[in-house]
Design a protein around this nucleic acid. Sequence first.
RNA 1: GCCCCCAUCGACUAGCGGCCCAGGUCACGGCCCUUUCAAGGCCGUAGCGCGGGUUCGAAUCCCGCUGGGGGCACCA
Length: 421
Amino acid sequence: MPVRVRFAPSPTGLLHIGGVRTALFNWLFARHDGGEFLLRIENTDTSREVEESVEQIQRSLRWLGLDWDGEIEFQLDGLGRHQEAARRLLAEGHAYEHEGAIRFRMPDEGATVWADAIKGQISYPNEKLEDLVLLRSDGRPTYNLAAAVDDADSGITHVIRGEDHVPNTPKQIRILEALARPLPVYAHVPNVFGTDGKKLSKRHGAVSVEEFRAKGYVAPALMNYLALLGWSYDDKTTIMSRDELVERFGLERVGSSPATFDYEKLDWMNGVYLREMPPDQFADDLVAYLRETGFDGDEETIRASAPLVQEKIARLDEYPKFAGFFFRRVEPSAELLDGSGPLLAQVREALATVEPFASEPIEAALRALAERLDLKPRQAFQPIRAAVTGSNVSPGLFESLELLGRNESLARLDAAIKSYR
RNA sequence: GCCCCCAUCGACUAGCGGCCCAGGUCACGGCCCUUUCAAGGCCGUAGCGCGGGUUCGAAUCCCGCUGGGGGCACCA
C-alpha cells in the first residue's frame, strides 16, 4: 500500500523555516515511496489574513519545489464530518455532554503507547490525560478531534509533524480508537533552534522562505541544507541533489534531538550550488533575482559579468556590492590610491594601445609594465583595481577591464590620476 | 507544579558493545596556490554533560543527577 502523508500548517502568520523543514520531510518521504503528499490548511475561520497566509504557504512550497497532490484541503470544510464523529462518540458512550460541549471520556488507567517512527516508543499515563472537549458549545470541533478525523478520512498512513504535537498524539490515538479507525504511524520531528539556541521564531533572523529567497539563497541549496538538519544519509555525504535526496530519504535516519540552524553552513552550501550551476543558468537566476529585488542595471551587463562573479559569491545578494562598479562610476578612497598617480599614468598609456582590448592581451601588457617598473604584481595591480573598481576586492582585474571597455577604463584611470597625482 | 522528549567537537552529524586514544561537513587556525577577494589543495585545534552500575570490554545497554526542549485551553 502506497504511503500517504500530509503537511498541515495553520494559516496564522508566516510559514517559517522549521515548518518548511517538516513539509520537506513529508514530501521526501512521500516521493521516496511513490506515495502522495497532501496539503491541508488547518483553518478555523476564513479571514483575509488566512487567505494571505495560504498564498504565502503555497508560494514557499512551490519555490522549493515541494509539489503536493490533489487540491488543498481546508479543515473547515470537514465541519460536518467532525460533528458527526463527535455525535457518534456521544451516542456510543465514549463522550458525554458537559455544559453544552461534548467531552471525550479518557480512560484513567493504564497508558497510551505508540511506536514513534523517529523517537521510538513513547508512553503517556492515561491518568494524566484529561477529558478533552471534542465539540465546543457553539458546535465547532476542537483541533484534536478535527485533526484525527481528517487524518483518518484522508487515509493518511504516516503523520509526520513537529515535536510540539507529541502531547496531542495520545489524545488523537484514543479518539481514533474509540471511532474504530485505523491508526497512522506517527513520526515527530525535533525542533529547529536559532543560532542563539532558542526555538526559531520570527525574532531570530530570516525565517520565512521568502526571506531566504530575498537574501539570495537558491532553492536546491536550501533544500539540501534543510534535509541535513535532523537527517543524514551516511557519515560523509553532504551535497545531494533533489533526486538523490528523494532516493535516499528515510525516517529511520532522522535524529531525535533538536538541531540549530547554522547560517554560515547554509552560506557555504549555497556557494557550492552557485558554483556548480551551468553558467547560463547562473546568469538566468541572477538576472531574475536582481530584477525581483529592484536592481536596475542593464541585463546585458549583468549577463556579461555573471561568469566573473559566479566563482566568488556565496549569495546572490552579494552581487550589487561586488559587481556594482560595472554599472556606475566609482569613487576610490584616497587611502587606496594615495601616491599611485605616476603608476596609473603609465598603466593608462599601456592600456590605451593594447590590441585587442581583451583580458589576455591586457594581462600581458600590464605584467610587462610591472616588470619594467620592477614592481611585484600586487603592488602594480592593486592601485589599478582600486581606480577602476573602487575597491580592493573585486572580480578578476583583467576580465573586469575587458568588460568595462577601453573608454570607460581609461576614463576611470584618468579620474584617479587627476585626483591622486 | 505535573506529563513527555532529548543529550558526541562552537554548529550539523556518523557511531546502533570490541572496527573509535571517536569519522565527515561548516566555522576557526596554519601552509600552498595566487593580481585582490573567494574558490581549491594540504595540515591542524576542538567533542562522547556528570555519577553510579552491567560487561572481559561502553560514546554505544540500565539507573540517577544535571542541563536543554516541548506540552499541560470550549488555541491550532
